[in-house]
Amino acid sequence: MTKIKHLIQNFSLQKFKKGGQKMSNVENLVKELVKIHGKNRNSLMPVLQGVVKEEKYLSEDAMMAIAKELDLSTADVYGTASFYTFLDTVPRGKNIIRVCKTITCHMKGKDELIKALEDALKIKVGETTHDKQFTLLTANCLGWCHKGPVMLINDEIYPETSPQAALEIIEKYQTSTKK
């Protein structure tokens, strides 16, 4: 059921994109999402997720638009968004890298992995590259302890990532983005 919902959502958003509207027009995006998920309070989560999927983060304007559409207070929307690590309220890059920081991955060398990423991207954890292509973050346990260290790029998981492998992986994202 969820899958179908996602398909509908993606389809509808594609249609929306083709409509000639710019995706930066976050108000329209929110309206579109509310059309799909409904106007009740329950739809707050999927709407927040929908905006993050497109915009990578929840801007002030986005949260205000959501509050307006769902008849909630802005503080309420912000409160919900700030609870979830994967719902960012500060600008993020096109690709978000999250390295697991929990104990197993730590013992299997997440520090070296982070160091390699920081050096390659010329940013520290929590920062975004100048060209807005990458944001480097750490995450709590991603549930891949048996194959640590792991990193997550957007929705893709990369188990047993050595520093060298990590560089090759982000290389791939860099080229795919340039195309």
Binding site: L72, S73, A75, D76, Y78, G79, S82, F83
Partner: peptide, 8 residues
Amino acid sequence: SALAVVNK
């Protein structure tokens, strides 16, 4: 609702 619980 000027005030809300934020973060965790």
